[in-house]
């Protein structure tokens, strides 16, 4: 190589998205190379879509050498179920769907059971699924910018045999040297998107043309106003209050979860650039659409100690 070529090379700098992508791929490869039985938690949301896309890149031309696991609550949006099947098939990966049998039996739902809904379907369901299949590492799409308590979450988070998180037992992460060793029964949650922000995710989806659930784009949808939150009537199971009539509004969702727990925002943003535009000019943060952390600002941290992502 001539010195001129070297010089011109050195002026090239990877963009922030290229660096984030390379880091996520590095993390996935490190984890998979040392794991016995890894799995990717797939929630069908935009972060999961990004993570799955990165996994395809990390192991190309092989398909990602692990299955996808969807811990289902039976209360997700219909559009999410549709994309779930398609995304797994496109990636050439096995899709495992797990529903907590006790929650199925008791018919746990967000209308009658309050926080029990999240506890049983998601928190318990995740633990049961990981135990059932004996997964020792689970990739998750959590980001450090989502919430204050997550800013200190490691990229590899160690859980005891009972899936509890102990802030005192987390390991220092130096350079890009991940210590993936664990005792029998312990498991790892790996967060390859730790250093991505919400804006990074959107820009990446835009740049890479990643398939996401259409609910992220504005469209006329039937909603009801519940205590200031616009809840979409996604199927006939939604009990309407007396006198309540679903109204057609142009709405979109900034995060996706169980439809009765996920607030829509009124919006005309029907394309990805418009969504990003709206996000940049908006003044409320992403998590506000989720009913789960409204109680107190430290509630996410409690959830994490109990084993919820």
């Amino acid at each position: 190589m001539t010195s001129t070529a070297q010089k011109s090379m050195s002026s090239d700098t990877l963009t922030h998205l290229q660096r984030l992508e390379a880091e996520s791929i590095h993390i996935m490869r490190e984890v998979v190379a040392t794991a016995e039985n890894p799995v990717m938690l797939y929630s069908v949301g935009k972060d999961s879509a990004c993570m799955l896309h990165l996994a395809k890149k990390a192991f190309y031309p092989a398909p990602p050498p692990f299955p996808l696991l969807h811990v289902d609550t039976t209360w997700k949006f219909q559009d999410m179920y549709a994309l779930r099947e398609k995304a797994a098939a496109d990636a050439g990966m096995e899709l495992l769907v797990y529903q907590n049998p006790e929650a199925v039996e008791k018919g746990i739902n967000p209308f009658d059971h309050g926080s029990l809904h999240t506890d049983m379907w998601k928190t318990d369901g995740l633990k049961q699924a990981l135990t059932k299949y004996g997964f020792d590492v689970a990739f998750g799409g959590a980001r450090r910018d989502e919430e204050k308590s997550r800013a200190k979450e490691r990229i590899l988070s160690f859980r005891s045999a009972s899936h509890r998180w102990d802030p005192k037992q987390q390991r220092p992460e130096l350079w890009k040297l991940y210590n993936t060793r664990k005792a029998k029964g312990e498991s790892i949650r790996a967060f390859p998107l730790s250093n991505w922000t919400e804006l990074d995710i959107w820009q990446y989806i835009h740049l890479e043309n990643i398939d996401i659930v259409p609910l992220y784009y504005a469209a006329p949808r039937p909603v009801v106003d519940r205590g200031g939150m616009l809840i979409m009537v996604d199927d006939a199971r939604m009990p309407l209050l007396e006198g309540e009539v679903p109204m057609m509004r142009s709405v979109r969702f900034r995060t996706l979860g169980c439809y009765p727990l996920t607030g829509a925002v009124e919006s005309e943003a029907a394309t990805l650039p418009e969504v990003i535009q709206e996000m940049l000019l908006t003044t409320t943060s992403e998590r506000q659409g989720r009913a789960i952390d409204h109680d107190q600002s430290a509630s996410m941290e409690k959830k994490k100690q109990e084993g919820y992502f």
């Binding site: 963009t15 922030h16 660096r19 820009q203």
Partner: peptide, 9 residues
């Protein structure tokens, strides 16, 4: 968006 795709870190 074009501008921000070329940001460094």
């Amino acid at each position: 968006l074009h501008k921000h795709q070329h940001k460094t870190m």
